[in-house]
Nucleic acid binder design. Structure first.
Length: 594
RNA sequence: GCCCUUGUAGCUCAGUGGAUAGAGCGACCGCCUCCUAAGCGGUAGGUCACAGGUUCGAUUCCUGUCUUGGGCGCCA
């Protein structure tokens, strides 16, 4: 295909550049061409004359007229006229517009794919603590992250999808001790279950598994366990605790963990590991079912095991960015724009989560990633300056790190807000949600809201209106094309012949508009990838489906006129292809029938 | 208090330094003897929170006020 016939936009820019050289030699300007919303403004519009008005000290309309006068002739341009305050509106020849259909058919699954871009990019997302089932908040991060990664890959980047497994911290200890307490309870060694331990039934399931596999091997008397831990507050289960009581609860839980480690010795690791691998496996299976795949599951613990955390702290110290106060080691992050300094090593000698995160990000650079996208919950936004600060302190390219914040999902059942607490186990899991509304509707629903805006997810609505979810509107367009093609094939039609269709037969306004829409797909991919905005693709696909449905209702595809039929089917197949390419990025299926 | 975020149609939300600001839902009126009506066409509905500023041009950028939500631990 000739680039002149399919890349109309670049062609027009060339024409304008040439005219500019005649009208104002030596003047430099960015040539912008946009697709006007209003069809009466032509197919493309340029504001070049307005941009030049200031430099040339002349009326924009006058400049526009001279530019139009100097435009080289082109078969692709039907009309170039001055409008409004000084726009130059181009109307493109029909043939130049519909040529895109052949290009779509030729490129198939690759239509819209961007040119290979240099560098290695990592997208890290979900990274939920493996302490229980994923919930609807994680579902949003997963839908956004997976779509963003696919979008970036389709736009031409080399992308690695990574899940950071927080297998080293206190939360994991709490999960392990929760499991152990349930296990002890099943042997009659009853210890009041702390309200700040993990409450979910899956903890009992794991306890049962341990029991089945190893019997009473890990049993210790309840009295011995409690003897090691500071007492819990007097009222174990009654609503709002005061600050002091909360502190008391945490101290009690830490005491139980210490007791477990002490009494179990090496066997503590078995409980810990069992809980970890169970939850991680569950999480992985959940995400795979959801269509969310990771290339790398990176262990936080490995950063400790390889000495990377100690090395990172030592390096910061060597560079003079640490100081000691109150027995702890502090990173002077205020030197790098943070609002206060941060502890990297506590008074008790343990590293903070921040310390391992510094090591983790250092490691990302060591692995050769030239751009790193972290997708975090919005509550971590205050965390960005300190991580970037640490990177700067280590002389790493802090600007190579982009953090995309995913805002909270508030769950509603009707007008009633569903309270969510991970530890209390009172939350709706991603699995339940997927089962209720389906994977496709679920993933698409999440993408209908920009990720940095909070989202109200009404379960009743999602369920009752699942058939009204816009995803079906798009899938329906796809299925409709498939259905027509099936009938045509039954009548002896052959899809392979469509690439030779005479596209000149596509003369109606709707057909021209559809072709123009298809031509804009690569630009949309490019801009959505640049902006990190998969939702833009979701909205665009809905628009494309709308254009298709309108056309489908206005014109019959399987007409008697063989030439026209071929051309229309070719256009329909091109639409189907673009819908397919778009939905694949969003992780949504493109069904042949509905 | 400081930092971030939000305000656009009755509701839920897109969008843009440019021309007459859009969609879905809801409301109302129409369209299947015809390729899938999970669809289409039409009507009604707006001071783009408010006030200044920058600009040829501001709903978009800047400042202030009001407003929505979040964050400010030797938690992770």
């Amino acid at each position: 295909m000739s680039s002149q016939s399919t890349d109309i936009k670049a062609h027009l820019a060339e024409l304008l550049r040439s005219a500019l050289a005649s009208v104002a030699p030596g003047t430099d300007a960015d040539i912008h061409l946009e697709r006007p919303r209003d069809a009466t403004h032509g197919d493309f519009a340029s504001n070049l004359a307005m941009q030049l008005a200031r430099a040339l000290k002349e009326n924009p309309r006058k400049i526009a007229e001279r530019l139009v006068h100097e435009l080289p002739r082109s078969a692709a341009v039907l009309k170039a006229e001055v409008a409004g305050a000084g726009f130059i509106n181009f109307t493109v020849a029909a043939g130049a517009k519909t040529a895109i259909v052949a290009a779509v058919l030729a490129q198939g699954d690759d239509y819209g794919r961007g040119e290979r871009k240099p560098g290695k990019l990592q997208v890290e997302f979900v990274s939920a603590n493996p302490t229980g089932p994923l919930h609807v908040g994680h579902g949003r991060g997963a839908a956004f992250g997976a779509s963003l990664a696919s979008l970036l890959a389709f736009a031409g980047h080399e992308v690695c999808r990574e899940y950071y497994v927080n297998d080293a911290g206190r939360q994991m200890d709490i999960l392990a001790v929760s499991t152990w307490l349930r296990y002890l309870d099943s042997y009659g060694e009853h210890i009041p279950f702390p309200p700040n331990a993990y409450q979910g039934d899956y903890v009992r399931d794991m306890a049962q598994q341990v029991r089945e596999a190893h019997g009473d091997r890990y049993v210790h008397p309840a009295a011995a366990v409690l003897a090691c831990a500071p007492a819990a507050p007097a009222r174990p289960d009654e609503g709002d605790y005061s600050k002091e009581e909360k502190d008391q609860l945490e101290a009690h839980l830490d005491g139980l963990i210490a007791a477990a480690k002490d009494l179990l010795g090496e066997e503590w690791h078995y409980i810990h590991q069992h809980a970890l691998s169970e939850q991680l496996a569950d999480c992985r299976e959940d995400l795979e079912e959801y269509g969310v795949h990771f290339d790398c599951w990176f262990s936080e613990r490995s950063l400790y095991d390889t000495g990377m955390v100690a090395k990172a702290v030592a390096e910061l110290e060597k560079r003079g960015h640490l100081y000691e106060q109150d027995g702890a080691k502090w990173f002077r992050s205020t030197h790098f724009g943070d609002e206060k300094d941060r502890v990297v090593q506590r008074e008790n000698g343990l590293y903070t989560y921040f310390a391992s995160d510094i090591a983790y990000h250092w490691n990302k650079f060591e692995r050769g990633f030239t751009r790193i996208v972290d997708i975090w919950g919005a509550d971590h936004h205050g965390y960005i300056p300190r991580v970037k600060g640490a990177l700067k302190a280590l002389d790493l390219e802090a600007d190579a790190l982009d953090v995309a914040l995913v805002q909270f999902v508030s769950l509603f059942r009707g007008t009633e807000k569903v309270s969510m607490s991970t530890r209390a186990g009172s939350y709706v899991t991603l699995r339940e949600l997927r089962r209720e509304v389906g994977n496709d509707a679920c993933r698409f629903f999440y993408l209908l809201r920009k990720q940095d805006q909070s989202l109200d997810f009404d379960l009743d609505l999602a369920k009752s209106q699942s058939n009204d979810n816009p995803v079906y509107y798009i899938q329906y367009a796809h299925a409709r094309v498939c259905s027509v093609l099936a009938q045509w094939r039954n009548a002896g039609g052959d899809e392979r012949g469509l690439k030779d269709a005479d596209l000149g037969a596509l003369v109606s306004e709707r057909e021209q508009a559809l072709a123009a829409k298809l031509a804009a797909f690569p630009e949309l991919i490019e801009s959505a990838a640049r902006d990190g905005a998969p939702h833009a693709l979701a909205f665009w696909l809905r628009d494309l489906a709308a254009d298709f449905h309108a056309w489908y209702n206005a014109e019959r595809l399987l007409v008697d006129d063989a030439v026209l039929k071929q051309a229309r089917l070719a256009l329909a197949v091109a639409v189907r292809q673009v819908i397919r390419n778009g939905l694949r990025i969003l992780g949504v299926s493109a069904p042949e029938s509905m």
